[in-house]
Design a protein around this nucleic acid. Structure first.
Lengths: 219, 219
DNA sequence: CGGGAAATTGTGCATCCGTATAATAAAGAG
DNA sequence: CTCTTTATTATACGGATGCACAATTTCCCG
């Protein structure tokens, strides 16, 4: 009598995996890791819970995939800002910094998502490797942009500058996302540009020729 | 027949609450929020699970208390570094920055603990208030130390400088804790001092007269 | 237009979660 | 030394969780 099984469509492996990963990220961003249960993930992805184990050997594996996808996506979004920007090294650096401190990178959900995986990064060797790779990749982009400025600094100093600039960006990214109301509109990107500029000894704010000019919001 | 109930000692309310809070923090730091179950917390604190509800109306309330304690403790540890330090404003600022980037503040467990509460901060008004208060308190200390430098800068600029310095410290704190092997010994505090100095336009490294001199580890 | 591989569903299970509450032990008061 | 208070233990309950596995549907291939 209850021959009423749910009808469904077969999807490609890539699509289903991407959907499940995306659903996981959304749920963690919204309600933290504890909200991302297999049932909730499946519901969000429009499938039933059992399917998860058809594509991932365990929930942990899905978790790892979701974290990998998050980290790759974040650096990619930052690097995207470099595509359509002038050739001036200062302009390129300014665009990269600014893009990292504006939506969609500056986003409370992204921070919660990133933070939600923190302890797994500490306890899982594979995730630690992913984190380190993503961190290094982002910092390398930064270091290359800094090196391109052609100031007269020793190579050894570049590494420290990149680490420091990365740190300011990270710090502003976290607090700017969690406490958006604690800052003026545009204050976060402006402070990022000013701080990175100060660390490098140049004036980055003078090289922001974007549509939404951060200088307008300068105090 | 099994008249074998566990023997116990009565403790003061403050002791028990502190023990339960401490156990919660330890567990979250070690295994993330999901490891901090009522049973695990009770076991770590040396009591049985039922007792938690005698001191806290719910597990959420214990969670909130643990977060409050964490945040208060972190700023307190940083401020402690100001007690036994010379009167020079530069020295005091340098000591504060340096202390925030060394153990016990720079600690992977602390970062995991802090990150583990992130999503609760977003979804719980009370925790958000705690976070904002702690963030503001820390930044105010920083801003006062910066103001004491008696450079000739407009008041409006002080706020931005404090936010930026706070951000560098936060960023270095996170990455330095999670990836300790990615940095040279002493590199993190040194970079913190150099960056904060650059943002403020002064040389902080020249004012670090501590036993463990960060200049020794300069590249 | 079958037939067969496999993608997807549905169900059940052991375990763990937070909470409620009754039973008991400890410790101070008189 | 007993009485009273209450801190603490112990047990039970309903619900949720990750996972295993059998049943069913889809869709491609010949």
């Amino acid at each position: 009598m209850d021959n009423s099984r749910r009808s469904y469509r077969r999807e490609s492996q890539e699509t289903r995996r991407a959907d499940l990963i995306s659903a996981t990220q959304t749920l963690v961003a919204e309600g933290g890791p504890e909200a991302a249960t297999v049932r909730a993930i499946a519901a969000r992805a429009g499938v039933t819970a059992g399917l998860i184990r058809h594509y991932f050997q365990s929930k942990d594996e899905l978790t790892r995939a979701a974290y990998r996808s998050l980290m790759d996506g974040m650096t990619a979004k930052g690097a995207d800002a470099l595509e359509s920007v002038g050739a001036s090294p200062e302009e390129r650096l300014a665009a990269f910094v600014s893009a990292s401190l504006r939506p969609p990178v500056l986003d409370a959900g992204a921070v919660v998502l990133w933070a939600g995986y923190m302890h797994k990064v500490r306890n899982d060797a594979e995730l630690l490797a992913v984190h380190e790779a993503a961190y290094t990749a982002y910092r390398d982009i930064l270091q290359r942009l800094i090196a391109a400025l052609k100031r007269d600094v020793p190579d050894a100093q570049l590494r420290g500058e990149a680490i420091a600039c990365n740190a300011v960006i990270d710090g502003l990214w976290v607090e700017g996302s969690i406490l958006p109301d604690a800052f003026e509109p545009g204050e976060i990107p402006t402070l990022g540009l000013r701080s990175v500029g100060a660390i490098l000894g140049i004036d980055l704010l003078a090289h922001t020729s974007m549509l939404t000019d951060p200088r307008k919001t300068l105090a």
